[in-house]
Computed example of a mutant assay.
Amino acid sequence: FIQTDAPINPGNSGGALIDMGGRLIGVNTSILTRSGGSNGIGFAIPADLVAAFVAQARAGETAFQRPWAGLSGQPVDADMAGPLGLDRPGGIIVSGLHPASPFNGAGLEVGDVIVSVDDQPVNTPAEMIYRMSVAGLGHSARVGVMREGRLQEVTVALIAAPDVPDRAEVTLGARSLLPGLKAAQINPAVIDEMNLPLESAGVVVLDAGRFGPRVGLSDGDVILSVNGVAVEDTAALVALLSGQVRRIQMVIQRGDRRMALRFRG
């Protein structure tokens, strides 16, 4: 968002935020308020990001798609800058890369520091994604990278998260031990949609259904194994919860926690 002290009041959302020359710089969105009126702190969506939304809508998209980075990272603070060869804090140190990440394809490695996108400095992952979104899907971005104290520039393709292999979504039937549970095989698109850790693999719960929460399952849980058997795809999950086995021990991953659930059918 652009933060502005221009008065924005209820009902102004969707209106233009312009500069002194009458140029559109944003679309008013929200205000910080305790009373319901403007306190002089408002927020607007930047005009270049709005343009990216409009372009996708005109192309027939019904939901906005941001370019997929396929990496994890954190801002470089003062303690990290020196050892990384930086003269001041700034940039994003790469801590993880998905094999299908376009950054991985461009040659980035864990430990590299991303300092700019299209010559604009970036200091947080959110800033990086914003710059990529402005450039738009199907294009490429020039990314400045510091490695071992040397600055280099690479070209990164701006792509949506690949929806391969097939997510093979299933909904367990009435004869299953967890009828109504909906699950999918994990791929980059599913990782992006469900905000899963990059290293996630196997099967994720899309909808725990009516009975899943009763045994401790939640949407977004990654099912790792059932009764000691690894769940590598949705076909395996269907077979393992077929109802022929009455005692179940299920190992799941929820965020950074691994949990064991035990229940009877």
Rank of each mutant, 00 (worst) to 15 (best):
Q152N: 13
I18V: 13
L71A: 02
L177D: 15
G144E: 02
R257T: 11
I129Y: 10
D192E: 13
L181F: 04
D77N: 13
A59K: 08
M194K: 11
A157E: 11
A184Y: 04
P213S: 04
L17F: 00
L137G: 02
E109A: 15
A69G: 11
I114L: 07
A63G: 12
A69K: 04
L24N: 00
G136K: 02
V215C: 07
A141G: 05
A184W: 01
V170I: 15
L241D: 00
M146Q: 12
S200P: 03
T234I: 06
G73P: 02
F263C: 07
N195T: 15
I114V: 14
D166Q: 14
V226I: 11
A161F: 01
P125G: 07
I41E: 02
G82W: 15
A208I: 02
N195K: 15
Q253R: 13
R34V: 12
H98P: 04
G180D: 04
G138Q: 03
G15V: 04
D118C: 05
H139R: 12
D207I: 06
V229W: 11
V251P: 13
V110N: 08
R88N: 11
N187S: 09
R147P: 05
G144H: 06
A135F: 02
L32P: 00
Q65S: 15
L224A: 09
G85D: 10
G265K: 07
P197Q: 03
L196V: 07
F263M: 09
R214L: 12
L84M: 09
I186P: 00
R257W: 12
I2M: 01
I18N: 00
R131C: 07
E232T: 14
D119F: 13
R210A: 15
L137T: 00
V164F: 13
L241M: 06
G82R: 15
S95P: 10
G70C: 05
R88M: 12
V110T: 08
G209K: 03
G212M: 03
G91W: 03
Q120R: 14
D48C: 05
R58E: 14
F64W: 05
V222T: 10
T171I: 10
T33G: 09
A235H: 12
G180A: 09
A6S: 12
P10H: 10
A183Q: 01
M80Q: 11
P179E: 03
D219C: 14
D77R: 06
V110C: 08
V76S: 02
S30H: 10
A6Y: 03
D256S: 14
V76A: 07
L32T: 14
P125T: 11
D219V: 14
T29C: 09
S72C: 11
P197R: 08
P162I: 06
L84N: 01
G138R: 02
D221R: 01
S101Y: 04
F103V: 08
G202F: 06
S133Q: 07
A183L: 06
G90T: 05
G136E: 06
G37F: 13
L198I: 05
A81M: 09
M20D: 09
A161H: 04
T29L: 08
A57R: 15
G209A: 03
A235D: 15
